[in-house]
Computed example of a mutant assay.
Amino acid sequence: MANKIKKGDTVVVLSGKDKGKSGEVLRLDPREQRAVVQGVNVVKRHQRQSMQSQGGIEEKEASIHVSNIAVSDPKDGKPTRVGFRTLDDGRKVRVARRSGETIDR
C-alpha cells in the first residue's frame, strides 16, 4: 500500500460484485491491507437494540482489499496507478500515472 491510498481519496473498484463503482475511502486498515469505501460492499447486519440504536437489520459498508481498488484520476475519473514526485519546494506529492496530475484531497 505504501501511502498510495489515503482516507478521503476517491477510488474505483477493480474487481468483485461492485466492479466499476466509485466512492470515498472512509477508513483504512494498513495492517490488514483493507479499506472501507462509501457505498461499496454493502452488507446487512443484525443489530441488537440498545440505548443508542433502535436495532433491526442495518446496511453498512464492509471492508475491501486494497488490491481491488485504485485511485481515480483527477482528470477523467478512470482508475490510475499512483506515483510520487518531489516538487521544487521540497514537498513530496502523489501523482496519477495516467495523466500526470497531482492527486489532491
Rank of each mutant, 00 (worst) to 15 (best):
M1V: 04
A2L: 08
N3E: 15
K4I: 07
I5T: 02
K6Q: 10
K6Y: 07
D9K: 02
T10H: 02
T10R: 00
V13I: 11
L14T: 06
L14E: 00
S15E: 14
G16W: 04
K17F: 07
D18V: 03
K19D: 09
G20E: 13
G20L: 09
G20R: 10
S22Q: 13
E24P: 01
V25N: 02
V25F: 00
R27Y: 11
R27K: 08
P30V: 11
P30Y: 14
P30K: 10
R31T: 15
R31S: 12
R31M: 10
R31N: 12
E32F: 05
E32T: 01
Q33S: 11
V36Y: 05
V37C: 07
V37N: 09
Q38W: 07
Q38N: 14
Q38E: 12
N41L: 04
V42N: 06
V43R: 14
V43L: 10
K44W: 11
Q47E: 12
Q47S: 10
Q47H: 14
R48W: 09
R48A: 14
Q49W: 03
S50A: 06
Q52S: 08
Q52N: 07
S53I: 11
G55H: 01
G56V: 11
I57Y: 14
I57M: 15
E59S: 15
K60V: 05
E61G: 06
E61Y: 02
S63Q: 09
I64Y: 04
H65E: 12
H65P: 11
V66T: 02
V66D: 03
S67N: 13
N68G: 11
I69D: 00
I69A: 02
A70G: 04
A70P: 03
V71G: 01
S72I: 08
S72R: 14
D73K: 05
D73H: 07
P74I: 06
K75D: 12
K75A: 13
D76S: 10
D76K: 03
K78E: 13
K78W: 05
T80Y: 09
G83T: 07
L87T: 09
L87I: 04
D88T: 02
G90Y: 05
R91G: 07
K92Q: 15
K92Y: 01
V93R: 15
V93S: 12
R94C: 04
R94D: 05
V95W: 08
V95G: 01
A96Y: 03
R97D: 05
R98P: 02
S99T: 14
S99F: 05
S99W: 03
S99M: 08
G100I: 00
G100D: 04
T102A: 07
T102L: 10
I103H: 15
D104F: 11
R105F: 10
